[in-house]
Amino acid sequence: MPGPDLTRRHFIGGALASCVLPATSLMSTEAWADQDPDDPFQLPPFDEKKLPKDFRRAVVPYPTRHWPGTVIINTGARQLFVVLEGQQAMRFGCAVGRDGFRWAGLADVGRKVMWPRWTPPKDMIERSPEKAKWKNGMPGGPDNPLGARALYLFQNGNDTLYRIHGTTEPMSIGKNASSGCIRMLNQDVIELYRRAPVGTRVVVMAEGI
């Protein structure tokens, strides 16, 4: 039985792989594991162990009467839960609005976008004039503050202008940092994007407002 046909090309390829793989593994493996193969951009690496444990993704006990699939945001705890079967939930850390910018209510996911375009609203430009350069929209990509994915929240069939989205500031997770939107790690919002179809119910709890 013939053995493997090792050629010089195989040898060089293997040697290159042995050089490349350790370099890749220096990046957060979690980030790469969450990357979709057809994603047009690579996720900036981030080691979620830099975040307190309560803000890292985990499956946790979650006794509730809400239907599986419901997304529940505990504003006070800065945590987002996706209700699972069996009185469990997948927990994610998130950032919520700064003082005066938090809100509560029910909404539906009305639209989902990969690497969304971001257009700062007029009042944000008034507060931060340097953002005026993006008044016609900033293309999606790793530098876009909406991050890798956005889920647009609707009420009565209309866009609330609130979104659940990724971030370019992963260390803001767990803080009251946004202007009302719900901010997640890019790898987490990608997971949520996969799990939450259009029509998903979103409950933003009033505690912590």
Partner: peptide, 8 residues
């Protein structure tokens, strides 16, 4: 991100 306007 800023998307909030003063609610009605």
């Amino acid at each position: 991100m800023m998307f909030l306007r003063l609610p009605a």
